[in-house]
Design a binder for these strands. Structure first.
Lengths: 139, 139
DNA sequence: ATAGCTGCAAATGCTTTGCAAGGCC
DNA sequence: GGCCTTGCAAAGCATTTGCAGCTAT
């Protein structure tokens, strides 16, 4: 017997299938939260709490698994601004970040707002994977 | 009775005193390693191993303490490139970093090699503490 | 049917903390 | 002497892993 997918999960289901991921109940909930309404910055814990707040039943370990699976599938991107806590960003286009050191809040900076000129050449034998600009804010 | 400071620790001792830190045996060893010969990038563990390799007797907790005390005193600067591991840099002048994701190695990029133009304004009520540019390398 | 997921709990890795003993000023 | 440091071990987080049971395809 095939499971009926609720209408609000239709978009998430298609996105998961397109990425080659099975449409499990937990992934649908997380995908809906992550991709359902605009760009998001989440940590494993914040996403877990948000999902739990929506009444979803899933474990923190599954949230970690899904975040990494989504990242590997190219649906998310990891942002490193704080040793000890990984952030995930649903905005995949090139851009940078403001980071409020006090609150841990992350905010996008459109790529057009920063120009990185004269990028240095990668050292012998290395390729540049990505350039991250983090503007750290105090107060 | 006052302790005699070995000649090779003279410079380190003065640096600690200038920063308002007591010249304990452990701090002298760490300061000598960190500031004795050119700029360094260390993690707590790498510094601990290096000190232990030089025959110094000190605990990992003390290395953590000293790294934070040195940072608070303005002798070091923390670099965040990897969630889960803090790096410390003895180079205090403005500059940026190459990060080899495979090996975890960090390498300085002189400030003059990168131009960050058109820095965005800090959001209402916030001040820019610092701008970090991290060039992530693969291979 | 079966390969892939999930959940739980235990394990891991880095870092911090509490507190008694020791050392600098 | 008094206060700051150290050392050890235990505690603390965030994250990962092992494995039995479940589920999408």
């Amino acid at each position: 017997m095939s499971k009926v997918i609720e209408p609000r999960f239709q978009a998430a289901a298609e996105q998961l299938r397109a990425a080659g991921l099975r449409t499990t109940r937990q992934r649908l909930v997380l995908a809906e939260i992550l991709f359902g309404r605009g760009h998001r910055h989440v940590t494993a814990e914040s996403l877990f709490n948000e999902a739990a707040g929506h009444g979803a039943k899933l474990s923190l370990a599954t949230v970690y698994n899904c975040l990494h699976q989504f990242t590997a599938a190219g649906l998310l991107r990891m942002v490193t601004v704080d040793a000890g806590r990984a952030y995930f960003d649903t905005n995949l286009s090139p851009h940078h970040h403001f980071y409020y050191e006090k609150t841990g809040e992350l905010r996008d900076i459109p790529e057009s707002d920063i120009a990185v000129a004269r990028l240095p050449q990668a050292p012998e034998g290395a390729k540049i994977a990505r350039v991250d600009v983090i503007v750290r804010l105090q107060d």
